[in-house]
């Protein structure tokens, strides 16, 4: 009996302990859910498939699918080594580099886009040379990639850096003493062990890149990607007009994120 009573008391006490976090957290979850649910509510009254079949929507989907993976790839190929250096070395100006990495997260994407324009816009030296060579850096898919990379790359750098930082440096020292140089050690030890963190960063970067609007609008309003198309449709047709593309964007992102997580699932020790 006494055991039962204590159990009861214990569970009541636990409920009381969890009350405050449950209420506060619940508020936030409800706030995430409400707009999402009401937005999806409208799908019933909108012809989704027909709208997505239109050439304008098709082009936007194609452009987004062309650019976001490339931006993610660039961010990963350059960002992961940067993350490693930041996690392992101290050097003069490291603070500055770290600040620069975080900068795109702090400034509004529209301002980021404006900054990109001042650097590589059509009438800047770099932009002019590129245009002459037939590779325009603005109002082109390359422009879209530049904007997406600028805004999204910090995610993979910051996440991968945390991943590398969590690896005991002695594991790398052991590899060096076993005959591998810095590159071999990075490839055989650091990379596999930080894989989970890197993939999390890749997922975040991809999601951010494919949904990028502010900077893309400034640098390459044309050709349209899904987010810029959504904006144009909203101006001309209101909320109902954007439901199909928004749903498509959401689905693509979900599928890619799930695929990366599934394919790249770190074979943890417990799994094996």
């Amino acid at each position: 009996m006494s055991f039962g009573r204590r159990r009861l008391f214990g569970s009541r006490q636990q409920t009381a302990e969890l009350l405050i976090p449950a209420v506060l957290g619940g508020l936030l979850v409800v706030y995430f859910l409400l707009p999402f649910a009401f937005f999806l509510w409208r799908t019933g009254s909108v012809p989704i498939v027909e709208t997505l079949a239109q050439p304008a929507a098709q082009t936007a989907i194609r452009n987004s699918l062309l650019t976001a993976p490339v931006s993610t790839l660039i961010a990963t190929v350059c960002g992961v080594p940067l993350a490693y250096v930041l996690a392992r070395r101290s050097f003069r100006g490291k603070r500055l580099v770290e600040a620069l990495v975080v900068l795109p997260l702090i400034i509004p994407p529209v301002v980021g886009g404006a900054m990109i324009l001042t650097a590589v816009g059509r009438f800047t030296p770099i932009g002019a040379v590129a245009t002459q060579l037939g590779i325009p850096l603005t109002d082109s898919l390359i422009g879209v990639i530049l904007a997406q990379t600028f805004v999204a790359a910090p995610f993979v750098v910051i996440t991968a850096r945390a991943g590398f930082g969590a690896i005991d440096e002695r594991l790398e020292q052991a590899s060096r003493s076993l005959g591998y140089g810095p590159l071999g050690t990075f490839w055989n030890v650091s990379l596999p062990l930080a894989r989970g963190a890197i993939l999390a960063g890749v997922v975040l970067t991809f999601a951010r890149a494919i949904g990028e609007f502010g900077a893309t609008m400034m640098v390459a309003y044309n050709p349209r990607t899904m987010p810029t198309r959504i904006w144009v449709d909203f101006i001309s047709g209101g909320i109902d007009a954007i439901v199909p593309l928004a749903l498509a964007l959401l689905s693509i992102t979900l599928v890619v994120v799930a695929a990366i997580q599934r394919l790249g699932r770190v074979p943890t020790v417990i799994d094996r």
Partner: peptide, 29 residues
Amino acid sequence: PPEARGVGVVFQEPTLYPHLTVAENVAYG
């Protein structure tokens, strides 16, 4: 550099590679 020295090291903290089997760990070098 360490890889050119032919020095075997066992650290105080465990440094076995968690993503490799025992045999793969031993074969690493």
